[in-house]
Design a protein around this nucleic acid. Sequence first.
DNA 1: TATTGTTATACTCTATAACTATA
DNA 2: TATAGTTATAGAGTATAACAATA
Lengths: 137, 137
Amino acid sequence: MLITADMSRDLAARGLTQSRTHLLWELSHRGPSTQRELAGALRVSPRNVTGLVDALVDTGFVVRTPHPTDRRATLVDFTPKGSAAVRVLEREQKDFARLLFQDMPEQQFSGLVEGLGAVLERLRGLVVREDSGGGHA
Amino acid sequence: MLITADMSRDLAARGLTQSRTHLLWELSHRGPSTQRELAGALRVSPRNVTGLVDALVDTGFVVRTPHPTDRRATLVDFTPKGSAAVRVLEREQKDFARLLFQDMPEQQFSGLVEGLGAVLERLRGLVVREDSGGGHA
DNA sequence: TATTGTTATACTCTATAACTATA
DNA sequence: TATAGTTATAGAGTATAACAATA
């Protein structure tokens, strides 16, 4: 997820912060989720998710619904307002990508993509994910 | 300033957070500065700088010294420990850059640089800095 | 009058630990 | 026993507003 300064201002005007927006974004990619799942996806403590979901419920972006089979868990899902907010986010990201890349000469674009790809490969060789045991190559 | 996850962990182990490190970084680029100047550079409220400097004084990275001509202001400057910490940061950034780019074929590297340059130009056309009056192109 | 930094107050994000209800 | 989510507690970063000292 990419959030520009302008987008941040707009989000704030709608009652969203970056962390809450991140949660909405994950929710839109995963569908209705337990808070535990969201905590894992956001790499954040379950307690933190409680707070973020509380705020998003208060401001009308999501609802907590009972989990169909596990009575300990709740499923977080969008309200119509929440779905609409994510659609706006997606459109803004596409618009922003167009502003950055549209009409870029093909050769320049492919040079950029190849260079970034190479950097990502190098990063992949260096990074060990938190959930895979930590440490360096 | 670029801070990787590993660097964050290391900084935390030394008693530094990202915000405090950012302040040290600006201080090293600007030399001894008033808190007002740091607030401007970090794009953060003066009150916030008070808190960051308090913490950096407590942990021995910087000192407050009287401003030579303006008795309202204080100059923030490094302790030897603070200078050493910034030198370590700079070395780590260079090491990281080497890991990302060293031995990259010249053609790939220049393709990347040109592509990024083009993206930055497009961004420059879109962005109006906060301190220049705000708004979009 | 205007500016520098502070105290007062408040909100958000974040974490760990202890607890309740359920599996 | 283990797991899902909560309450309790705490710390960091951030902001605005009011205030003191100085310019």
